[in-house]
Design a protein around this nucleic acid. Structure first.
Length: 887
RNA sequence: GGGCGGCUAGCUCAGUUGGUCAGAGCACCUGGUUUACACCCAGGGGGUCGGGGGUUCGAGCCCCUCGCCGCCCA
């Protein structure tokens, strides 16, 4: 006998261990099985599971479990990302906290050893947390972006792209993060609106004949100014073009040039040009052959190109000093308050400086073309579809991808420099030396590039590098392209786009056929969860509190197509209750001898109620299968909820009670068998979303009745029930019973008939078929509606309360209890309802254009509806008139 | 400035190709010792589907326009 409640705390770890030990997570080796594969978006190895991971991985697990049960060779390939900056940051912080020497004092080798040490200790945290969630990943295939195989893949890709001239070295402005002292890519830059100022500076003309005013939000950059630009058509300045101003503080004469970049509408119309420290100015500088003066050090202090008394000053201190100097010189014309966007590093949070450096670039524009085409042609489909616009938008305007990072933790760039600076890009040092020997005609000492690659470079290879590429492995053969990628929209640029480019280039095929973009989880108020706001919900705490299944079900139910999910514990609690409901329904069936019958065939059941639930079950299987195929996760959750609670528990079990307690042994046996059968189907359908509870119920009911053909639920076969199991006659019959009971309950409740009262239910008027249903089901209706019996009468006695169900008139003789006013109100309400319906339909049918243009079946439907409503209204009006007569 | 998404019951959201589509869950109100479940059962109130205009026999669903809100990119 089942306990009263499911206990997730003890069951979850036990069941997970059982699954894992059984090998159920690995794809079946059956060569005939169709492959279905998902690669996990590798979480940062430093990370711990947040609610976004919980959602993302729940959805992947739902798909994997579904396809596994369907008999496919389902592979969910897990792993983690070395996460260059993030990890380096964590370890550096730890070193600092422990009072250790800094990274730089420690040296590269020792520091990296420290990181690996840290990874060995803490790197398993997040994968263990995924296990708590129930994720059925194939852990035997787990990968890490910095493991040997993936590192080899990275080198191969880099060298190949270099030889194809799709990777090159270039000197240009990059986004420089002074905190980490590395370049970062455009998409790692976050624009933040901040309060700032426009400082209007006067630059005196060199000949002393006047001045020209420019404005800037970054005064310190004036130290690197090499021109002032005005618009070529700007009449105010035309006469000054070609002349020069003397740059205050610095004393350098700089030219006044004509360039369309200057906007006559903005400020004075003249703009200072600092080619080495501003992206727009850089373009202007290139167009006009201006010198580019870098005035900053790697850590954003003024370098030797600045005036003596500025050298070594931090950029913000230098800013203050520049402003003070202008004020002193009497050249500060105006200070204007402004709000403007300032670039920040998404990891460091520090202000990014445009900075002129040598970096490695990937020719993303070229690689993007096939990636754009693949989505245009539908070889990869985004779900929801509208994300394709975002993808195209970015891909069509893609910039060269800066892939070098001045960090230590990551894939060292496989490039070696000869004594003369000649670059040898090879997969190994030995190969580079060989190439150098070839080039120089002798051995020369080589120096490897100090930089590492952007983390996203290795994650871009993830769908094939994890399967063993560049080796030709059987996994690649079988599971590439992967079936579906499930990820968040925030990394469409970072990750999805890069995988598309790399996959197409190196595998000649898309990395995945479908990309499901999941929503972003927010708190109950819709705010983004963040540690600083203190509104973070820890998924593991929620698992502790409500069980993994409840959390999974909640996330599944809420993952519609909307961008945001607003998560509240109330919701989780409700779905925890849903699990308990199913648990207790199972407990009920167990108590009532429901057990699998040997050779049970749902097509052969005779009892109407059983035929009905068989049909409803088949319908649900079909809609759930369809919804899962379409990644309509919310439909899955809602459909299961409704079927299990409102159909199986509320009606099937309730209507089955009289049979289970009755004397008709044949009907009883059939009902016991059908209830058990339907429950098994339910467990299967619910398993992908609530794996723990269902597996536990599956186990606990395993010895009830005939043995199951299948072992554990996780590997049981997904149900396949034919549409033909739906029986229209059974639907109509049970539908009438449900309608009669519901309406009868409503009447009793509205008239405040005491709960203990047991009037008979009078069948006043009904067609032959309906009469037969009422006769056959009198006992069930009587028990469920809590009436004494059913009586068939020619007309309703005085004071009986009539109600209309599917055209039949029923009545409850409860005159002694009723409040006349209440009854009058009830009737009036019903009549009004029908009246408005009639008016609505009449208006339609009265419109000749409607009858002429609308589809025949629509017109017919409306005619029927009108007739029904009119009949019902007439009956109720008659009842009301009788009531008035009594009074 | 450009792009994308949203605006449906008090709250959170569903509403496929326009024709019972005005729904669900929660919240709220009323009643309940129905021997599976109070993590329960039964019943109930509540929305002119952001505003305006248009197409259509018919629009929450299509078009235009305006207004907010959010996100992304400049």
């Amino acid at each position: 006998m089942l306990e009263k409640n499911f206990d997730p705390k003890t069951a979850e770890s036990r069941l997970y261990a059982m699954w894992e030990a059984s090998g159920a997570f690995a794809p079946t080796s059956d060569p005939a099985a169709e492959p279905f594969s998902i690669v996990i978006p590798p979480p940062n190895v430093t990370g711990s599971l947040h609610i976004g991971h919980a959602l993302n991985n729940t959805l992947q697990d739902v798909l994997i479990r579904f396809e596994r049960m369907r008999g496919k060779a389902a592979l969910w390939l897990p792993g983690t990302d070395h996460a260059g900056i993030a990890t380096q940051m964590v370890v550096e912080r730890q070193l600092a906290a422990a009072g250790n020497v800094s990274r730089r004092d420690m040296g590269r080798e020792d520091f990296i050893a420290k990181v690996w040490e840290w990874k060995a200790e803490s790197g398993g945290t997040i994968t263990n947390q995924l296990r708590r969630l129930g994720a059925s990943c194939d852990w035997s295939r787990e990968r890490f972006t910095l493991d040997d195989g993936l590192s080899a893949a990275v080198r191969k890709v880099f060298v190949t792209l270099h030889k194809q001239k799709l990777i090159y070295r270039d000197k240009r402005l990059v986004n420089w993060d002074p905190h980490f002292q590395t370049a970062i890519s455009d998409i790692e830059v976050e624009q933040r609106e901040v309060d700032g100022h426009y400082w209007h500076f006067a630059y005196p003309l060199e000949d002393g004949s006047g001045e020209i005013v420019v404005a800037t939000t970054r005064p310190e950059t004036m130290l690197g100014d090499t021109a002032v630009a005005v618009h070529p058509t700007d009449e105010r300045y035309k006469h000054l073009i070609g002349r020069a101003v003397r740059l205050p503080i610095v004393g350098r004469p700089i030219p006044i040039i004509a360039d369309e970049y200057a906007d006559p509408e903005k400020g004075s119309g003249a703009v200072k040009i600092t080619p080495a420290h501003d992206f727009n100015d850089y373009q202007v500088g290139k167009r006009n052959n201006l010198p580019m003066i870098n005035i900053l050090t790697d850590d954003a202090k003024i370098n030797e190109n600045g005036p003596k008394d500025y050298q070594g000053l931090d950029r913000f201190a230098a800013r203050k000093k520049v402003i003070a100097a202008f004020e002193e010189l009497g050249l500060l014309r105006e200070v204007e308050k402004t709000r403007h966007a300032v670039p920040h590093g998404d990891r460091s949070g520090s202000v990014i400086e445009p900075y002129l450096t040598d970096q490695w670039y990937v020719d993303a524009k070229t690689l993007a073309q096939p990636a754009i085409k693949a989505v245009e042609e539908g070889r990869t489909v985004f779900e929801p579809r509208h994300w394709e616009k975002t993808y195209f938008e970015w891909m069509r305007n893609i910039e060269p991808w800066c892939v070098s990072r001045q960090l230590w933790w990551g894939h060292r760039i496989p490039a070696w420099y000869g004594p003369d600076g000649k670059i040898f890009v090879e997969e190994t040092e030995a190969a580079a030396q060989a190439a150098a020997r070839e080039h120089y005609g002798r051995d020369e000492p080589l120096r490897q590039d100090e930089d590492v690659l952007d983390t996203w470079f290795s994650s871009g290879l993830w769908p094939f590098s994890t399967m063993g590429w560049p080796e030709k492995t059987s996994d690649l053969e079988r599971f590439y392209p992967t079936s579906t990628l499930v990820t968040g929209f925030d990394i469409i640029f970072f990750w999805v786009a890069r995988m598309m480019m790399m996959g197409l280039h190196f595998m000649g095929d898309v990395p995945f056929n479908r990309v499901f973009i999941n929503a972003l989880v927010r708190d109950a108020k819709g705010a983004k969860m963040s540690k600083s706001k203190g509104n973070v919900m820890d998924p593991l705490e929620l698992v502790d509190q409500y069980g993994a299944d409840a959390l999974r079900f909640t996330l599944t139910a809420m993952s519609g197509q909307a961008r945001d999910i607003k998560l509240s514990t109330q919701r989780i609690e409700g779905y925890r209750n849903f699990g308990t409901k199913l648990w207790n329904a199972t407990r009920f069936t167990e108590m009532n001898g429901c057990a699998r019958a040997e050779g049970f065939d749902p097509a052969l059941v005779k009892n109407t109620l059983n035929r009905w639930i068989v049909g409803e079950t088949a319908r649900t299987v079909q809609s759930m299968t369809k919804a899962l195929d379409a990644c309509a996760f919310d439909d899955v959750a809602n459909g299961l909820y409704r079927f299990i609670w409102n159909t199986y528990c509320d009606w099937y079990v309730e209507l089955a009670k009289p049979i289970l307690n009755g004397a008709d042994e044949a009907a009883k046996a059939e009902t016991q068998a059908t209830a058990a059968w339907a429950l098994d189907v339910i467990l299967k359908m619910l398993h992908p979303v609530m794996p723990f509870l269902t597996e536990e119920l599956w186990a606990q009911t395993s010895d009830l009745g005939a043995a199951r053909a299948e072992g554990m639920l996780i590997t049981a076969r997904w149900p396949d029930l034919a549409e033909s199991l739906v029986d229209a006659a059974a639907d109509a019959e049970i539908g009438l019973i449900i309608a009669a009971v519901s309406e009868g309950r409503s009447v009793k409740a509205e008239l405040n008939v005491p709960h203990s009262a047991r009037p008979p239910l009078l069948v006043v008027e009904a067609n032959d078929a309906q009469r037969a249903v009422f006769e056959a089901n009198a006992a069930v209706i009587a028990q469920t509606l809590r009436v004494s019996e059913l009586q068939f009468v020619a007309s309703a006695p005085e004071g009986a309360i009539p109600f209309v169900v599917n055209g039949a008139t029923l009545a409850l003789p409860v005159a002694e209890f009723i409040d006349l006013a209440a009854e009058r109100a009830r009737l009036a309400k019903e009549i009004a309802g029908h009246a408005s319906d009639i008016a609505h339909v009449n208006k339609k049918l009265g419109n000749p254009a409607f009858v002429a243009n609308a589809k025949e079946e629509v017109v017919e439907e409306n005619r029927e509806r009108l007739a029904e409503s009119e009949a019902a209204k007439a009956k109720l009006e008659h009842a009301l008139s009788l009531l008035e007569a009594v009074v």
